[in-house]
């Protein structure tokens, strides 16, 4: 495992703080997911229910986020794949799994070419911005992971081409990353997750920190 130095923003301190980007998802991440992320998500869900927000008001099929046993098995499956994780103060703050082989680009300008596909990217629940959630503890976890995905694409010779299916509430994030929104397809994620793709130009701008 290699660790790279990155920086997050510690909201309480109002200052940048050093963190590590690991080029793997290891047992430690799964333990953090199970014993720290999961209870925090459950506490958040309880807060939603206390505020009169039930599953019917949330945009997800129940099985996707209430079935912890199934989700735990899927998270265990992250081990051994190409992945990255962000660790700050010894706690996992975000993780991402990449598929380097099986997906091809869809944008007309680069259709059929190799790309890095982000098949999973998640930020620790205490860093979420959601209605009823407390303010995030650390910011920049997501941008750091996207930086890693694009850098990996360049390293693989894919020129920064990255594809992913965004959560609905995350759409503005990928748009500002300079990714192109190709919309949803009924045969993918029940038509709920739009597909986004970056071009080499958009990737280069992102690595330079140029915002859209």
């Amino acid at each position: 495992m290699t660790a790279y130095q990155v920086h997050l923003f510690d909201a309480a301190a109002g200052a940048m703080v050093e963190a590590d980007l690991h080029d793997e998802i290891a047992e430690k991440q799964l333990i953090d997911w199970q014993f720290q992320w999961r209870p925090a998500v459950q506490a958040y869900m309880k807060r939603l229910v206390d505020n009169g927000i039930g599953p019917a008001d949330t945009a997800w099929p129940q099985s996707w986020h209430w079935d912890w046993r199934g989700k735990m098995n899927e998270v265990r499956g992250l081990l051994g794949h190409t992945g990255y994780s962000v660790v700050c103060r010894d706690v996992t703050q975000g993780m991402m799994r990449l598929d380097l082989a099986s997906r091809r680009a869809r944008l007309d300008s680069q259709a059929g070419q190799d790309l890095v596909y982000v098949d999973y990217l998640e930020v620790a629940p205490w860093n979420w911005r959601e209605p009823y959630a407390d303010a995030p503890i650390y910011r920049l976890v997501g941008p750091v992971l996207m930086h890693a995905a694009i850098t990996r694409s360049v390293d693989e010779g894919f020129k920064g081409r990255v594809g992913l299916h965004s959560l609905p509430q995350a759409i503005p994030f990928y748009e500002r990353c300079g990714f192109t929104n190709l919309g949803t397809r009924p045969d993918e994620y029940e038509g709920k997750l739009p597909y986004f793709e970056s071009t080499p130009g958009a990737a280069e701008a992102y690595l330079k920190g140029e915002l859209k």
Binding site: L48, D57, E74, L140, M146, Q169, A170, F173
Partner: peptide
């Protein structure tokens, strides 16, 4: 920092969280 202002990123069905 300006970038990360309003929403939390997330990708793939495994990352789904309640969306209000």
């Amino acid at each position: 920092l300006a970038f990360d202002e309003h929403v939390t990123p997330g990708a793939g069905a495994l990352a789904t969280r309640p969306h209000v």
